[in-house]
Design a protein around this nucleic acid. Structure first.
Lengths: 245, 245
DNA sequence: TAAATAGTGTCTTTTAGACACTATCCA
DNA sequence: TGGATAGTGTCTAAAAGACACTATTTA
């Protein structure tokens, strides 16, 4: 078998919406390199472990899913990053994973991290390695996935209101949506939401109904965000490359 | 640095449209394992080489771009595959890349392949390793990318007619589109097509105009393929995974 | 001239967006 | 009662789909 050998790591872009703002889960590195710097959570792939297993394991460790806290969400592979000089220790390929989780208590650091925290997406400091780019790619993926899938519901707990769901879209897209048109759109899209009989009392206005996520995964027609630019909006990464002329 | 080490390979899903059918580029393996079986072209990532460089290099070798043949197309990262038992030689992670190229002469085998050929997508035999799944993921990605990007033009040569472009959509989606509505849609989408002054004579009807690809990359509103199922249409791979309940 | 393909015009249906209006809570 | 939020109805504009019709070629 030709070729040199790589260490293979998984890094997680874990997104959630807290206080109507999109946040990412960051860890403070507890060991070199980049000791003390902020980074994406992650870890090396163990022998006999598949990529998604590593990602799920580290996600559980960081979000405290192993403490019995019920986690509903979504996990998907994002992209791989393997620039020769991206890690000073040697040749390391990192597979990025993108996770959506509902708002939950403060994270519990794991995997050799000194600390961990939810950080608003527009206040993220410079990160270790090439994690800035991985994070950017993850956020961009999240923004476009909300357009044509029902994944916004992965940011919500098991039962949620239409307004809860709208706040997800507004936070991820940094925009505002008409509450009335949004309501009609999501409740009339077959399989997106399943109504319960429960109304949430205690709020300031008419009590909203609770819904659960339905079986639909694709959104047709999609939920288009406003004024998508028509010219080049390729992500920052290599993921889109024209070949010559 | 903890963790065991991996060999890292790149495998290519190279798609083209020939005779109004979607084809993939396959190679016949010239060495073990899977000697004599069909597989996706690929190769190991060299020291100091980035992933996209490996992919571009192998793409050029297989399609004969190094022979001076002008290649216009598209290359993007697809996903990574690293199941512990996917390669009998040991732990190998493969990064899938997806390429769109215009129809071109028969391929010239490279990289240790015994033979190579364009194979209609619905006539692909069982492939070596987990290449069936990589191919499936690539085809599915291609189908959905044609909906909301202008990448269909990457299958066309530098100048092409509206009918040429429509045949791409029809081949990739295995459907038929109304030629008149298609014409209006693509010519009225700002930045998709740039008209030339050339008309193609010699055909059977009114000579069509040649166009070049415009600067637009995203399609807004998207070009929706018919009757997208509303329920679960997750790809075959791990790329979409719900987390618990 | 007939057949074939390119391209335009127009009508209908569907959907997005704006927004009036009703419903139901709390203070 | 008034303010706030939930939810429905309705109008308009934009886009998709069906398809008649014109334009320009070859056989």
């Amino acid at each position: 078998m030709r070729g040199n050998l790589f260490a293979v790591a998984v890094n997680l872009v874990v997104l959630t919406v807290r206080s109507n703002r999109l946040h990412a889960l960051l860890i403070e590195r507890g060991e070199p390199p980049f000791l003390g710097a902020w980074a994406l959570p992650g870890g090396f792939v163990r022998p006999e472990e598949d990529l998604v297993h590593t990602a799920g394991r580290r996600l559980g460790e960081e979000t405290g899913a192993d403490t019995g806290h019920a986690v509903v969400g979504h996990l998907e592979q994002l992209a791989s990053y393997a620039a020769p000089d991206r890690d000073p220790r040697g040749r390391v390929l990192s597979v990025g994973y993108l996770a959506f989780v509902p708002d939950m208590p403060e994270p519990t650091p794991g995997g050799g991290a000194a600390a961990s925290a939810w950080c608003p997406i527009d206040a993220v400091p410079t990160l270790a390695f090439d994690h800035d780019r991985i994070l950017d790619d993850g956020v961009e993926r999240a923004r476009s996935k909300l357009e044509y899938t029902t994944l916004a519901a992965s940011f919500c707990p098991h039962e949620f209101t239409v307004t809860d769901l709208r706040r997800i879209y507004e936070a991820v897209w940094r925009t505002t949506l008409d509450p009335r048109n949004f309501q009609r759109k999501v409740t009339s899209t077959d399989g997106f939401l399943v109504p319960t009989t429960t109304l949430v009392t205690g709020g300031r206005g008419r009590p909203p109904r609770l819904f659960r996520r339905g079986p639909a995964r694709a959104l047709h027609p999609p939920m288009l965000r406003e004024s998508h630019r028509v010219t080049d909006d390729a992500p920052s990464s290599e993921t889109s490359t024209p070949i010559r002329g």
